[in-house]
Design a protein around this nucleic acid. Structure first.
Lengths: 340, 340
DNA sequence: TTGTACGCGTTATCAC
DNA sequence: GTGATAACGCGTACAA
C-alpha cells in the first residue's frame, strides 16, 4: 500500500463539501445532487488523483468484488484458456480473481478454501483436484464449504447432487465419437480414460459403451485402460491396447492422445493406416501434430461465459440454472481411418 | 462475504478476555502471555470457528498481502507456467495474486494498473503488452506507475533503465544458438524475430549477429523477418526465408517454429534434411512435434523463484539485485542438420 | 440538498 | 500481563 493515499476526506475538504456528498457522487447515487456540486467533486478528485480505497469500502459494504478460483494447474491449456476468458469477463463486471493452483492435491484444495474464506472472497469457482473428487473425500470438502458459507460453483468436475455447476455434456460427447467411429467401420475400439472419480471420464465412457451396445458391439474390459489425463498415460495405454489389436484408440484427452501418437510412431505403427486415434479437448497442438488429430472441441469461451454468469448469480443470490451442460463439437481431422 | 462472520470480539467474550489479548495471541506477539491464557484463546477460537477478517486487518496494517500480476495472456504456455509457480511460491509467504490479462493491449495495462492501485495490492509483477513496451508509450506507463507509487518489477519485458527486473539472458542465448549453428556448418541463416520493441527479440538478434560477424559470416537484411510471437508469423516467415535458400531458420519462439515446421511440411520441404529449424522456449510440444525441436529452454521455475524473491524484497523495501538475468539452456534435438 | 455521527473488524497505543 | 480506546477509510441512516 502506498504510504500516503488520498482519502475521501481530503477530496471533500478540497471541494468545500461534506464527505457524504462526495461519497454519494462516487457511488452513482447522485441523483439529487446538483450538477455544479458534482462537478466540484469530480474536479477535486481529479486534482488530488483520488483513488477510492477498496479495502475500506469492502469492510463496510461486506463485498470484496473478488472471486477465488481454485484449479489443479494453470499451466494446463484447458484451465488456462478458461481462466483467461473468465478473468476478462468478470473484470467487465467489476470483479477480480485470486488464482490458486491445487497441484491436484486435496490438502491444497482445503487449505485454499480456508484461505480464501479469510480473504472474504464473494464467491468461489472450483475445479478441485481429482483426489478431492473421490467419493470418500467428498464429505471433507462439502462440510468445509458449508462451514465457510461462501457461495460457490463447481466447474468441469462435480459431485452428484444439487450444487451449482457448469460442465460439458460428456456423455453426449462420448456418444458422438462412438457413432462416428462405428460409421467409419471400427469395431474393435480401445479406450484410455482419465481418473474415474471425474464425471468427465465416467460420462464419456458411459456414452461410448451405450452407443456400442446399441449397435451390438462389445467393448471388452481389456479394451479399457484406466489412466490419467497426461501423456505418459497415453503411452502406457497405447502399449496395452496395441496388444489387443484395436483399430482405433479413443484417448479421453489430447495430452493422452499425443502420448498415444508418440508411442505408435516409435513402434512403427502408422496412423491412421494401422491404428486410428481420437482425442478430447482440441488443444492448440492438435492441428500441428501429425497426423492432425480428430478430437472433441471444448467450448472454452462459452464455458467461461456461463461460469461468469452463474457465479455472479450465485453471489447475488439471484435465480439461475443449477446445472449448465454445454455441447461440444466433434472436429474431424486426419487421425481416423475410414474402414468402409 | 458470509452474512455473519465470527468476530474477534466474540472470541474474546467467549474466552473471558479482552480483544487486545486475543489479538496479540493471533499475531504471534504473545511472548508475555501465559500459556494458560493462550490456550483459552485457541480453544474459544476453535469452538467458534473464528477466521480473522483480512479486509479489516488490511485496513489498519496497510498491507493486503496481495500481488497484482499483469500478463498479456495466461493461455500462453510460457506465462502460465511462470504464473503457476509464482503463485505457489508467493502463497508460501502468505501472499496471493490477482491475475489480469492485458490481451496485449496498452489500454488494458493502464486500466489494470489503476485498478490494482485501488485494490491496494502490495506489489505489481509486470509483463506488459508489446504495445506498452514501444518507446513512444513508455512515458504513459512509467508516469502512471510513479503516480500510483506501487512497488513493482518488470519480468521478461522491460524498459532500459534502473527499474527492477527479472529476465533471461537473451543475448547470450542468441549467441549459443548461432555458435551451435556455425559449428554445424550453417552459413546461410534465416531469422524470424518477435516484436522489436521487446528486449527478448532485440537481444536474441544482437547475440546472433555478433557471433556471425565474429565468424566473418554475413546476415543479410533479407534474411531477417520481423514478426510476432505466434504461429502465423512462423508460417509467413518461412515463406519468405525459403526463397532466400537458407539452410536453417531460427524462430525466436516455439510457436513460430511450429508455424515454420507446418509450412515447410506443407511445401514438401524436409526437416532437417532440406532446412533446419530452431525454436525458443522449450514448450511442451517441442518434444512431440516431428522432428523433435531443437530449442532454447527458458528456466521457468527459476524465473518464478527469482520473481518471487525480488517482488517481496521490493515490497518490503529490502536491498536486492536490481537486474536479475538468468541463463538458458540449449536443448539439442532432431531439427538441426549437421552440414559438416 | 447537504452535513453529523456511527459502525464495519482489526491492530496499535498507552495506561493500569 | 491485560484492558480501554483510538485509529484505518469509507458508506449510510438520520437529522437539518
Amino acid at each position: 500500500m502506498p504510504k500516503r493515499a488520498v482519502t475521501i476526506k481530503e477530496v471533500a475538504e478540497r471541494a468545500g463539501l461534506s464527505v457524504t456528498t462526495v461519497s454519494l457522487v462516487f457511488n452513482g447515487k447522485a441523483d439529487n445532487i446538483p450538477y455544479a456540486t458534482r462537478q466540484k467533486v469530480e474536479q477535486a478528485a481529479a486534482e488530488l488523483n483520488y483513488q477510492p480505497n477498496y479495502t475500506a469500502r469492502s469492510l463496510v459494504t461486506g463485498k470484496t468484488h473478488t472471486i477465488g478460483v481454485i484449479i489443479p494447474d494453470i499451466s494446463n491449456n484447458f484451465f488456462s484458456g478458461m481462466v483467461r476468458h473468465l478473468q476478462t469477463e468478470l473484470n467487465k463486471h467489476g470483479y477480480d480473481i485470486i488464482l490458486c493452483n491445487s497441484e491436484e492435491q486435496m490438502a491444497n484444495d482445503l487449505r485454499y478454501i480456508r484461505w480464501l474464506a479469510g480473504r472474504k472472497v464473494d464467491g468461489l469457482v472450483l475445479i478441485l483436484s481429482a483426489e478431492s473428487m473421490e467419493e470418500e473425500n467428498r464429505e471433507k470438502i462439502t462440510s468445509l464449504l458449508k462451514e465457510t458459507e461462501i457461495p460457490h460453483i463447481f466447474v468441469d468436475r462435480y459431485y452428484h447432487g444439487d450444487a451449482p455447476r457448469v460442465s460439458v455434456d460428456n456423455e453426449w460427447s462420448g456418444r458422438q465419437v462412438a457413432e462416428m467411429l462405428i460409421a467409419a467401420g471400427h469395431k474393435n475400439i480401445g479406450v484410455i480414460t482419465g481418473p474415474m472419480c471425474l464425471n468427465s471420464s465416467i460420462n464419456r465412457l458411459k456414452g461410448v459403451t451405450s452407443v456400442l451396445s446399441e449397435h451390438g458391439i462389445d467393448l471388452p474390459k481389456e479394451n479399457i485402460v484406466y489412466g490419467k489425463y497426461n501423456m505418459i498415460s497415453g503411452k502406457e495405454g497405447a502399449a496395452v491396447l496395441l496388444k489387443r489389436n484395436v483399430s482405433v484408440i479413443f484417448a479421453f484427452n489430447d495430452m493422452q492422445a499425443y502420448g498415444v501418437i508418440s508411442y505408435l510412431k516409435e513402434n512403427g505403427v502408422k496412423i491412421p493406416e494401422d491404428v486410428s486415434v481420437v482425442g478430447f479437448d482440441d488443444d492448440l497442438f492438435s492441428t500441428i501434430v501429425e497426423p492432425k488429430l480428430t478430437t472433441v472441441k471444448q467450448p472454452i469461451m462459452q464455458l467461461s461465459h456461463e461460469i461468469c454468469d452463474m457465479i455472479l448469480a450465485v453471489v447475488d443470490g439471484k435465480e439461475h440454472e443449477r446445472h449448465v451442460k454445454l455441447a461440444t463439437q466433434l472436429i474431424l481431422r486426419d487421425s481416423v481411418r475410414k474402414l468402409i
